[in-house]
Amino acid sequence: MDVIVNGGVEAVRLLLSGDHELWQVIWLSLRVSLTATFLSLLIGSPLGAMLALRPFRGRGVAVSLVNTGMGLPPVVVGLFVTILLWRNGPLGEMRLLYTPNAMIIAQCVIAVPIVTGLTLAALQSLNPKLRLQLQALGATRVQMVWLLVQEARLPLLAAVMAGFGAVISEIGASMMVGGNIQGQTRVLTTATVMETSKGNFSLAMALSLILLALMVLVNSVLTWVQQRQRPL
């Protein structure tokens, strides 16, 4: 119990003292995970819309792959991305390993299936006759998809929250492709693991509480956007 209380006190003290390193870690966590979430939204939501709205051969296989992908172990993703970005690997030329960009790529790989799968589910939860009605109203294909996406905006924002939640809290991939380098690729999760292994439980707890507070903050904003037009 003491550890938690001390952690809380430590967290507040660190935040208030304007600890440069801590703010750097917080900023990097946010930057990496928000960028990865945004990119996975750009990739995953059209992919999910396509899976939901366009019948094609092998669609069933694609859907089950996406569903499996929603539970990809970050460590496995980290390993694959590391191999890809390794100096002698296929993308080694780009010299991305142990940079924030590598972490963004890895987190994207984790979040894209989540956003795709939830977009698919969101669009499939709409009344299938709505598509017919929109077509009958003279909607082009693009207009129809746009209206359906707007109609599914509540579950789609849930998809964004789930994607962000998954990447800001993962550690395996960030550790492997980022390397937890002080001042460069250290984020809240990797720092927490390191402090714990060093026995600095109070500091680790402080970092964890800050991570939780960040998640609450970001999700509150998204929830506000989601619910503001929904009087009960």
Partner: peptide, 19 residues
């Protein structure tokens, strides 16, 4: 077809209104 459909209108059994 879209241009032709825009000269027609349809009402189905369910109202199918948007939010």
């Amino acid at each position: 077809l879209t241009a032709l459909r825009r000269r027609m209108a349809m009402v189905l059994q369910e109202p199918l209104l948007l939010d």
